[in-house]
Computed example of a mutant assay.
Amino acid sequence: MSLSRAPRRTRRTLVAVGMLSAAALTLSACGGDSNGKSGGGGNTNFVTNTGGISTVAKGERAATGKLAGETLDGKQLDVAGLKGKVVVLNVWGSWCGPCRAEAPHFAKVAADLEGQGVEFVGLNTRDPNKQPALAFEEDYGVPYPSLYDPQGKLILFGFPKGTLNPQAIPSTVVLDKEGRIAARSLMALDEKKLRSMIEPLLKEK
């Protein structure tokens, strides 16, 4: 059967599969972590421990590119304006099972650390409209904003090559108080692992 003669639902499915295949070339959806001992190769200066969390020494960190735009609730947000605080950037999608698994932990830690020099920002991606993402935030009591990035442009261009950039969904990147990329995880996190990425940066002078 030709595509032109296929039932409408089948055509939509084929188109959707094609779009997802193209997206997978740039960002692995709901990917796991390789648990490798070192990261990236080339001139990268980060190390991945056995827990799958990569870190960069204080003197070797790079700044992000521009991470700014409209949030799911229609406001404008620029991550650069959060300098002076530790910033937790969480890449997620409402359709992603591991994202749902980690969401309660993120909501709890964000609430626990409110007013303690930590800001959480979500990067919502691959949701073609906002409604499922807004429902996700309501379901899990997410207390922080998320930039709406359905095509993944912020994710692809907001992190310089050779840095700890998001490479999977979910991914979590933590910025130090100077706005530099300090730690990354490419897997769903529980409360303990999430705190282990944040607390050392809070202690830095």
Rank of each mutant, 00 (worst) to 15 (best):
S4Q: 12
A6N: 04
A6H: 02
P7T: 10
M19S: 11
A23T: 10
L25D: 11
L27M: 14
S28D: 13
A29I: 12
C30V: 00
G31E: 11
S34N: 14
K37D: 14
S38E: 15
N43K: 12
F46A: 15
G51D: 15
I53Y: 01
T55I: 07
A57Y: 03
K58Y: 08
T64Q: 09
A68W: 01
E70H: 00
L72Q: 05
L72D: 06
Q76I: 00
L77D: 07
K83W: 05
K83R: 15
V86P: 11
V88N: 01
N90I: 02
N90L: 02
N90V: 00
W95C: 04
W95P: 08
C96A: 10
A101M: 06
A103G: 12
P104Y: 07
H105A: 15
F106I: 10
V109G: 14
V109T: 11
V109C: 14
G115D: 10
G117L: 12
G117K: 08
E119C: 11
T125Q: 11
R126H: 08
K130G: 07
A133T: 01
P145N: 14
I155K: 06
L156N: 14
F159K: 11
P160A: 15
G162F: 09
G162M: 12
T163H: 08
T163P: 08
A168W: 04
A168T: 15
S171M: 12
V173S: 05
E178S: 12
G179N: 07
I181V: 11
D190M: 04
